[in-house]
């Protein structure tokens, strides 16, 4: 199940674990990333909490936790090579896997059609 947030994150939900990244649109808006900071495995976040940081040449931006949950895995590859997020944001450029506190919360997120409408 693929879901999106209005804050330009995508979630691929498999059971109670969501793989989370930023959308193609977000990656384009941010421009070339030069630094990514990911949370520690085991950290819990509330929805909207600052889970990761990305930096372009120009600016730093936060990546929010899209739902309540606990980090169970992070993608070290984007820390080693932040340009992966630009080249494949919705694939190899994923950020972290979040074990959802309540899987039903995902129903409140946007589906792909609704997100596409949002970004035009």
């Amino acid at each position: 199940m693929l879901k999106f947030t209005a804050e330009h994150e995508w979630l691929k939900i498999d059971g109670d674990v969501a793989t989370v990244g930023i959308t193609t649109h977000a990656a384009e808006q941010l421009g070339d990333l030069v630094f990514v900071e990911l949370p520690d495995v085991g950290t819990s976040f509330d929805k909207g909490g600052d889970a990761a940081t990305v930096e372009s040449v120009k600016a730093a931006s936060d990546v929010y936790s899209p739902l309540d949950g606990e980090i169970v895995e992070v993608n070290q590859a984007i820390v080693d090579d932040p340009s992966l997020v630009n080249s494949d944001p919705q694939g190899a450029g994923w950020f972290f896997k979040l074990k959802l506190k309540n899987t039903a919360d995902a129903d409140g997120l946007l589906d792909e059609a609704a997100y596409k409408e949002l970004v035009g």
Binding site: Q29, G31, A59, S61
Partner: peptide
């Protein structure tokens, strides 16, 4: 998100709510 750190959402110098406009 801390404004003191001048953090911003995706849209560079523009505020998140208006960068589509």
């Amino acid at each position: 998100m801390s404004t003191a750190r001048k953090r911003q959402r995706w849209a560079g110098a523009r505020a998140p709510e208006d960068w589509r406009a």
